[in-house]
Nucleic acid binder design. Sequence first.
DNA 1: AGCAGACTAGACAGATCTGTCTGGTACTGT
DNA 2: ACAGTACCAGACAGATCTGTCTAGTCTGCT
Lengths: 188, 188
Amino acid sequence: MSTHIPQGPARTRILGTATRLFYSEGVHTVGIDRIIAEAAVAKATFYHHFPAKDELVRAYLEAEFARQRDAVEALRATSTDPGATLVKIFENLGETGAGAAFRGCPFTNAAAEYPDPAHPVRQTIADYRRWSHTLFRDLLADIGHPDTDRTATILMMIRDGIVVGSDLDDPQALRAAIGEAVCRALRH
Amino acid sequence: MSTHIPQGPARTRILGTATRLFYSEGVHTVGIDRIIAEAAVAKATFYHHFPAKDELVRAYLEAEFARQRDAVEALRATSTDPGATLVKIFENLGETGAGAAFRGCPFTNAAAEYPDPAHPVRQTIADYRRWSHTLFRDLLADIGHPDTDRTATILMMIRDGIVVGSDLDDPQALRAAIGEAVCRALRH
DNA sequence: AGCAGACTAGACAGATCTGTCTGGTACTGT
DNA sequence: ACAGTACCAGACAGATCTGTCTAGTCTGCT
């Protein structure tokens, strides 16, 4: 029911289709043939825009990274209270985790399929995780938290726990525990 | 340097080789041909013991599940202090996470490659996660914690954070934060 | 008018995947 | 001595994978 005919230029269609399929079914299980079929694109066009499948995977994660950065940027622009921003980030995480289409974190899922830490895809994942940790640390510094670095690491744990647990356990029960988890993590 | 010639009966060799390869490189990237080659087993023998690859994946996770159950059982048998047991479980997690061969949680990694929640492999993963949550909840009850269920959920988050972060971030920095993370999670 | 660039359709190569099947060897218990 | 079991070696089928290549269409700019 949700198989829309993709719109716009070829590159956009490819990336949109790849995002949907890679996220919902995994990277290695989804072949190029399937992507070009569902994106309604010729094979030569695909390889014109992306020299190899791994480049598409990287572009998929890079786009997701940009999307999250923009969302956080928008959140920080509306609020001057860093504590509220922090809580809102985690509430949003729980909300998306409770959605039907949720299937975990695109970055950790991809990492599971790319074991080599030197691979370009893993570099993008590492960038994303450094950005996440820095984001938490900056917000904690803005709050005036005395233990920013270690607490940011603890918040990363909770973040990972939410995305993993929302996929594999009961997302509602998990969502109900997020507020308390963050609250306890911040206590020092 | 670590490619040992496998020992023992064929089934053990297959499962041992599969465990090593599936964990270090992923499930879909490792083919049957490679497993039978490194296990020094004939193809017919493989399919005699495991009717399909997915059955081997399931057996691999089931064996890992049993190993962890045994380890926890041994830990609970030596100590009568449930709080110390809980802390030790998390310390052990951080220790294995800091090891060179660590590549995240076998169960969450496998889940990333099996998107269908109804798949037998996902059932095993769900069993494992239910067991983990129940373990935490039982230990919290033994301590006399007033909020066992929600706190167990928070401990699950920290557990997931440790296994994900040990693989993708700096395992040493993460390990140094585990004690504090558990301590804050237990505070009520 | 004409040309460049983006696109489509699809054959093709070469590798690799899972799973089946044939045929032969070696050990073990009766 | 003999049946049963466990195993080995490897060919084979059929599907699927990534990536290349040929050949032709359509559109917009100059």
